[in-house]
Design a protein around this nucleic acid. Sequence first.
DNA 1: ATCAAGTCTGAAACTTGTTCTAGATTAGCG
DNA 2: CGCTAATCTAGAACAAGTTTCAGACTTGAT
Lengths: 205, 205
Amino acid sequence: MPAEASTSRPASPLTERQEARRRRILRASAQLAGRGGFDAVQMREVAESSQVALGTLYRYFPSKVHLLVATMQDQLEHLHGTLRRKPPAGDTAAQRVAETLMRAFRALQREPHLADAMVRALTFADRSVSPEVDQVSRQTTAIILEAMGLADPTPEQLSAVRVIEHTWHSVLITWLSGRASIAQVKTDIETVCRLIDPPEPTRRA
Amino acid sequence: MPAEASTSRPASPLTERQEARRRRILRASAQLAGRGGFDAVQMREVAESSQVALGTLYRYFPSKVHLLVATMQDQLEHLHGTLRRKPPAGDTAAQRVAETLMRAFRALQREPHLADAMVRALTFADRSVSPEVDQVSRQTTAIILEAMGLADPTPEQLSAVRVIEHTWHSVLITWLSGRASIAQVKTDIETVCRLIDPPEPTRRA
DNA sequence: ATCAAGTCTGAAACTTGTTCTAGATTAGCG
DNA sequence: CGCTAATCTAGAACAAGTTTCAGACTTGAT
């Protein structure tokens, strides 16, 4: 039913000034997150920094987690755009997916605080944020399927993709909290990507 | 180097009354969590319910997340004990691990609110909780390796185990926030466990 | 038994997410 | 243009995690 240009489902179309406010808020959020991570995104500061009253901020984003998940949607779109311009070049689907994820990972490494804010929000989100989190998940799935070069996947492949996403989120968390090295992140991503390639005979590393 | 009876590293031995306090606190925490999940575990209530001053609660557990992660350690020990008594019976390592995780999952299904509190705390934990989270991770790894019947795993196997843990945590989160069905949980666990069994022909458990 | 050091208590204070309110502003419409 | 409903603003108020403090209680060593 929905499907606008891309992401949102604007119940009411949003005037120009409203669109501008929304954008200012998201920019402020990403900016603050880029400094101190999740904790540094304080609702009063976001409001002030985006020149909007606190109440208005809450009208646009009903909670801090909603705000950060929306910020993530925003960033994901950028990423998706970038990836479309330069698709991964590996030979096998597994390689391409691993390459894609590692590329995303390097992007996050440049902004670890922002990554922290977004990922923590994503996994901390409760049911009230499900639609938004789901949207992020769909977008991620799309990116992975694209890297695989797969139009309509089988249920098994979908499960593998979900497992890859699970691993992606969790390994990020683990890295962000300093419990995994970058090498481990790489290894684990490559490991999980093994699920993609044919489990049947005829295969080599 | 360390390794006491099991879990903790008591810098100072803890008197009997202190041990009792600690236990009361953990019981109260699990109890409240069992009702309303993460949000229902309110520090003032935990303090009151365990007959301890708020300041004391914070001396034992320096934050709500520390408290809940400790609660999880506690529960994991129970689980490990139970599993030791009735080890999984599958033919292959993958089957046994999947069976083990599904058994754990069914246990969590019986206490979804408690699961919510523990898992959310675990993934929300920041660096200040790393040691405790790591301890949980080690315990989980031990459980999985035991199910595999593996004494000293190769680095590849360790990576596979980590990926399984990642999937386990993330799929739980997804289920708890209502974005995945129980069937999906099962499927995804089985999918990730495929990483265990021989990618080559010729191998036994 | 006594003293010092460390621990516990109760209560208040502080922080930050979230909600509420009353009054301005704006948008859409006749 | 003039009206009405919706939106926005400033700011107070509330909730729950966390910190702080003065005083009472325990503990361990002498």
